[in-house]
Design a protein around this nucleic acid. Structure first.
Lengths: 300, 300
DNA sequence: AATGATCCTTTAGTTTCCCTACATCGATCC
DNA sequence: GGATCGATGTAGGGAAACTAAAGGATCATT
């Protein structure tokens, strides 16, 4: 007893003849007849009987045909199950972000998508080296990653859209001698001790660029990833540091000065596997991320 | 997307690896892999993904696997649908009977099966020639038919069980000259005018037997099928008639006298197609018919 | 009563589909 | 870094379902 045989039985009940079923299912009457015989072989009581030259269902056949409707209904529901899953506007969407993006984007996402009926957010922080951002798309629907402008970009396996192109400024205590200048050159800052991230993290490459532009090696005094910690270290006189202009909450004891002559700008990208945007809920969150990026850029 | 593929997807969700599914379904992992690929071909979003060297369901795959459970449930219900139909004790059972059997058996059936939860009766009268009883089993679950003892019996296509072997007596007015005798011989009645059924109806053959035993032709004055009408005709002096001893309500103006020397006995049989007794409700009614036959015999 | 049309079934042959066997590739373990 | 485990691809064989053609039964028509 399989789905096709039940389908045939049901159609026979509704259409009333083998020939009509055959036409409806686009096969020969012979095929219908054979399938009915196979179905009957599995059932100890007659499902069909001759009525003149037509074949009709017995009471037992009608009982089984009724059950066949449930089977077809369930199959139809299964066929639409994926589409429903895909089209749900209120599905759960997981978003991972490195720390500073999280602190800037997460509040805007939470407020922008607080309305009921919208996507339910599952937020997570994930501060990893640049190479480890793409694999995160296995676990999260959307991954906020950063990379420096003019770097190779992301592997083909993930789709990336740029949310923000954010300048990196030089952070220093408000009473630092360089704080009086409006802009800084690589030469201005080459003598200073630096606080930078661990190797493999995106911002490090800019430090190298400054060294190249100034023609000398920089002194890397401290290696701190977390910008909030970096800010405290800078405020305490531990050295200069590159800090994002928009995504960090301004520290009262620090000033940010733009840097000339070096590409000091990072991209904040949303990474995801291509198929993830098949879900409406994911697309909604992605759109909200772009809106949030506009807000962040505008208030900078 | 068919039942087997959905089954495989569901098992993959529960067992967590292609190999485990293959072992559970008693096929090779290659077969599972191929079926999953076929299923995936019909769905625009990934249903599975690699996790290390295992294969697991994506969220979309889990959504579809959930729908697969409904499909399997419906199929299982379908597999039991016929059995449930067959085992229902309260199904409708149709019973057809010739007139005198109906008047004797129907009241006993209705009283014996009045309890709720038992079979629902659909009774019908059907007075047909002997040859037309078997075809009635197409339309009715049980058919009460009659035939004379020592006649060929019913065709192989129907199952027959004898309910009653009922003597046929000679009916006459209470003031008839023959009414003084305890028993009658063929010779006693051969001179009398007779009231008999139309040709083709069972009782007619006994009339022939009487004629043969007496060595002369009988005078068939009237041809009346319905025993109630026959009784009135006999009471009015229209002639003698053969009448069943038990299944007719006694007429106040008639007496019944047994006949010697001739097999004057009819069988009241329950006919049905063999498969009909697969239904519990039909078996219940058949048993009740036998019980009713005992009652009728006992009060005779 | 005969003829033709309709409907179902049977048989034989072909096509399609699914599975096994075997090889390969990638991931994990020691 | 070899060994093992798990999944997948390919080729081939066998089962299952279909088509085509013929035959039998029923019904309508003349």
């Amino acid at each position: 007893m399989d789905e096709r045989q039940l389908r045939i039985l049901r159609e026979l009940g509704e259409l009333g003849s083998v020939t009509a079923v055959a036409e409806a299912l686009l096969v020969t009457p012979s095929a219908i007849s054979q399938q009915l015989r196979l179905l009957q072989r599995a059932i100890p009581v007659p499902l069909t009987e001759r009525q003149g030259r037509r074949l009709v269902l017995t009471d037992a056949g009608q009982a089984l045909a009724g059950a066949a409707i449930e089977v077809e209904t369930a199959l139809e529901r299964a066929r639409h199950a994926v589409a429903e899953f895909v089209d749900r506007p209120d599905g759960e969407v997981s978003v991972a972000a490195f720390h500073s993006a999280g602190s800037a984007f997460f509040p805007l996402l939470l407020r922008g998508l607080a309305a009921p009926g919208g996507p339910r957010l599952a937020l997570a922080d994930a501060d990893v080296t640049q190479d480890d951002f793409p694999p995160l798309t296995r676990e999260y629907d959307l991954v906020l990653a950063h990379r420096l402008e003019h770097t190779p970009g992301w592997p083909r396996t993930v789709t990336a859209t740029t949310l923000l192109r954010e300048p990196l400024d030089v952070a220093m205590p408000v009473d630092h001698p360089l704080a009086v200048k409006r802009r800084l050159t690589p030469r201005d800052v080459a003598d200073q001790p630096w606080i930078t991230a661990h190797d493999g993290f995106p911002v490090v490459a800019t430090i190298d660029a400054i060294a190249t532009a100034a023609g000398r090696r920089l002194r890397l005094a401290h290696r701190i990833n977390e910008f909030a910690v970096v800010a405290e270290a800078v405020a305490a006189g531990g050295g200069l540091a590159l800090m994002p202009r928009w995504t960090m909450r301004p520290h009262p004891a620090l000033v940010l000065k733009p840097l000339s002559g070096v590409q000091a700008r990072r991209h904040i990208d949303a990474l995801h596997r291509p198929e993830r945007t098949a879900r409406k809920a994911v697309r909604t969150v992605l759109a909200e991320l772009h809106r949030a990026a506009g807000t962040i850029r505008g208030r900078g």
